[in-house]
Simulated scan of single mutants.
Amino acid sequence: MKTIVISLFAILAGTSFAMAADSGCDTFKWPVAREQALFAAAPAAQSGAALTVGQAMDFTLAAVDTISFEVPPDRAPAAGTFGATASIVVPPEGELQVSLSDEAWIDIVQDGHAVKSAGFSGVKTCPGIRKSVRFKLSAGPATVQLSGSKKADLKVAVLTPE
């Protein structure tokens, strides 16, 4: 009888661990391990900073009503929230993956227009990373607009999709 109880416990424990892993970072539509590693050592940045593909920054956000967005955010930010802008040079491949440590809205503006996202993945149970959004862009300069954050700090990673 002990063997059966211990075996049943081992099966249930294994199932619980698997379910816990599935409810965390593994449930993103694509891997986010690179972002997690970059977030751990992200240097501080202010609104207006230049982002580099393959790196992360730890932004100190400003009150959203004090930010001069190039175009109005696609989702109007609530009063009392925070935001920032950053410049980036899009590589010739044109695909970017922007990941955030917490909830906020991401717009990428290129040639004076907001570019619709090509993919989105978000998980509330992954420590240190909340969402990841993919964009198909033209090579050249672009502006990343962050808005609607309830917190005054936000880590942002910009990578090419795996």
Rank of each mutant, 00 (worst) to 15 (best):
M1E: 11
D22C: 01
K150R: 12
I88Q: 05
R75Y: 15
A20R: 05
E35P: 01
V144K: 03
L12G: 04
Q36H: 09
L51R: 08
Q55H: 11
D74L: 15
T15F: 14
T15N: 00
G119I: 07
Q145R: 02
L154C: 08
A62V: 13
G148L: 05
V90P: 06
V53S: 04
F82Y: 15
A49P: 06
T160P: 02
Q36P: 00
P141R: 00
M1F: 12
I4R: 08
F59V: 10
L137M: 14
A118G: 00
K124D: 06
A44S: 11
I129L: 14
A63V: 09
Q145M: 13
V144C: 03
H113C: 04
L154D: 07
R75V: 15
K151L: 14
G112P: 09
A152E: 15
R134W: 07
I11Y: 10
T143E: 10
T160E: 14
V89M: 09
Q97D: 01
A10V: 15
V90T: 08
S68T: 14
S147L: 02
M1H: 12
G119V: 07
K150M: 09
L8M: 10
A78H: 13
L51G: 05
M19R: 07
G128E: 00
A114I: 15
A76P: 06
T3D: 12
A41L: 02
D111F: 02
F28N: 03
D153R: 13
G140N: 03
A37L: 06
V109R: 03
K116T: 11
A62Y: 05
K136D: 08
V89E: 13
K131M: 14
R130L: 09
V5K: 02
T60K: 10
A44F: 13
S7K: 08
T125I: 07
E35N: 06
F39S: 02
T27G: 04
D74S: 15
V123W: 09
E162Q: 11
A56R: 01
P31F: 13
G148C: 05
E95D: 07
P31Q: 09
Q97P: 01
V32C: 00
G119H: 03
A45M: 06
E93A: 13
F135M: 01
A44K: 05
S117I: 13
D65C: 04
A13E: 03
I129S: 01
S7Y: 07
K136V: 15
C25V: 00
F69C: 01
A33D: 14
